[in-house]
Design a protein around this nucleic acid. Structure first.
Lengths: 353, 353
DNA sequence: GAAGGACCGTGAACCGGTTCAGGATTCGCT
DNA sequence: AGCGAATCCTGAACCGGTTCACGGTCCTTC
């Protein structure tokens, strides 16, 4: 007693229904070929005779065929997706890195899935989980916390590239900047200018490069033959944004009045600058200020900001290439770039007290 | 934490093979339930008796189960993906919008797929195509060109939300800022200060809000009883970045020397400012400068930039909510926010010639 | 204690592009 | 023409989570 359903289309139970997007089978029928051939036209066009290929392509055009990567991914295990996990896309530095990555990967038909962690380990975990479920082909991550079970990404088509992973245990390839050195350059500059009371506004301790920058600061003080506890006032902010920079500096001035401030970040430095200006303090006459990143706008600040330059876009490009070179997975190369202190006008001799 | 071994797999044909990730069937077997139940635990936990659910969850944990959204999407037609197409994630304004969107959608387990068009229609097309193939549940786009066949996204679970779509034909819901009004405020401000030779550095003509801002500028001039051709010098840049701002301003000064510059964008204004400073020109004494967006850093520039404020983060939040409210798809609501001119110190009376 | 119903759990069928072993054609060359 | 090789095509099986019609349990209620 089979009710002779599934004649072809038109389910009588429901009138206005989903139009059922065209699939390879529809294209195949129209082009008078098998569905396998359609797949070949999509993936290995050279393996199909030009005449046949043209027929299939015509059919695809006429039917407005749009494949479903999800279906393909199921069997082929290629999603065409690359996960990018950054601390904060709102930060010009990371935005620039992202642009670099984008510029490399877009030519390879890879789509970026982007997420910001905002220095929050829980968010990092959630993001990685989501990316794993989406079946990304590769992962590009700037870990703000120990990178747990990254191995699940390691045997994807493209491996894992870590940005600024410090000395953490291997996680695929990695590209970092010498944060210790950069921070040391910054603090040394200030010490040479005679500053002996310096505030250091840094990010959370779980973030690798924050730890390293702190290390560099301490090391610079030590090299100068000074005691960190005498010279340094440490402040920690949960997120490296301008808003946090303002808050931190406001609070700081309630406690003490250093002659210089080093920030983990240009954005924080921007916040500090705004806070100082509102307080009527002059930079660098009253307080010297140093940032980190050399973001585009700092040159035009009042005053132009002394900062540590990092080649953001380039980092993104290199990371992108590392990801693409299948070599990534096995060799686990590591690149280490060196930052450079750019002295502008936000730093000057320590005011005599 | 059992390392997810495969008990009874072992394909004799090939030794070292892919470990075959654990699937619902593996979990089902281990938890002594059917695979359908596992699916229920994942999607509708409340429909499963707590005892059973606990068993399944334990099994999932022990096996390190990570679902495959792709497989699920195939049948359920939900990808958990939302496409976000912006002009440029490297631009702080859009980065901020993105943060707003992110903040809303991350609580709904939606993953963002982000792409930048860089004012290039071809790139926009490519991105939309990729998003269609990925089967995104919704689309959030700031079109920089006529939005062709957006309808294919319209009947996805979440619809389409257009940012700044101008007066273009309907495309789902949209949220825009009154660009005409904002630009008019800016130009009127300059005209009142006595400027009669004003350069306008704008983006490409295919970009809706660039067209609108131009409209506003022209309208403002007309309202003041002046002739645009006498007052305005129009310059067009292909991408609204600081680098393009520098180039454009450098070139501009080879041709003429206006007493004021209006930029379509704070980033371009930043570039213009840098160019002017390198040329030894003072702002606003020699040249007045107006930006657009009120990006975070412009307040700390030398001099603080007069600009048109747009609530970036809020726009993102609103857009996110619009996308979530299923209503989007049918009603096609439109929101129109009004920007405000923030007068700072980069604008002053026209220098007498 | 039997009927009625709410609640759970089951598993075959399914989504749609890819794979690959094998069949069909075409080509080159004697 | 004849034959082997190279090239092209074919389509059933498959990937793995979701759906849903169906059957089993257990508790009420008369």
């Amino acid at each position: 007693m089979v009710p002779a359903v599934t004649s072809d289309r038109s389910d009588p139970t429901k009138g206005a229904d989903v139009p059922r997007a065209v699939g390879v089978r529809d294209v195949a029928k129209r082009a008078q070929v098998s569905l396998g051939t359609v797949s070949n036209v999509i993936n290995t066009p050279d393996s199909v005779r030009p005449r046949t290929r043209a027929r299939v392509e015509k059919a695809m055009r006429e039917l407005g065929f749009v494949g479903s990567r999800a279906a393909g991914q199921l069997r082929s295990r290629k999603s065409g997706l690359v996960g990018v996990v950054l601390p904060d896309v709102g930060n010009p530095y990371w935005a620039d890195v992202l642009r670099g990555v984008e510029s490399v990967l877009e030519e390879h038909d890879l789509t970026l899935v982007v997420g910001s962690t905002h220095q929050d380990p829980a968010r990092q975990e959630r993001l990685l989980r989501a990316l794993a479920q989406q079946g990304v082909d590769g992962l590009l991550v700037a870990p703000i916390d120990e990178l747990r079970n990254w191995e699940q990404f390691a045997d994807r088509r493209l491996g894992v590239v870590a940005l600024e992973n410090g000395d953490a245990p291997d996680a695929g390839s990695s590209i970092s900047l010498d944060n210790v050195d950069g921070a040391r350059q910054a603090i040394t500059h200030l010490l040479e200018l005679g500053h002996r009371s310096i505030a250091f506004i840094n990010g959370p301790r779980n973030v690798p490069w924050c730890v390293e920058r702190r290390e560099g600061v301490l090391s610079g003080i030590q090299t100068a033959g000074l005691e960190a506890s005498d010279v340094l006032i440490e402040v920690e902010v949960s997120d490296l944004t301008a808003a946090m920079g303002i808050t931190a500096t406001d609070e700081l001035w309630g406690r003490c009045e250093p002659t210089a401030i080093v920030c983990a970040n240009d954005l924080v430095a921007l916040g500090a600058l705004l806070s100082l200006q509102r307080r009527g303090l002059r930079v660098p006459e009253d307080v010297s200020l140093v940032g980190y990143d050399d973001v585009e706008f700092v040159e035009a600040l009042r005053p132009p900001l002394t900062t540590v330059r990092q080649p953001s876009f380039e980092v993104g490009v290199i990371a992108g290439h590392m990801l693409l070179s299948g070599a990534t997975r096995d060799s686990g190369e590591r690149e280490l770039l060196t930052p450079a202190l750019i002295v502008r006008q936000s730093t000057g001799p320590a005011r005599l007290r």
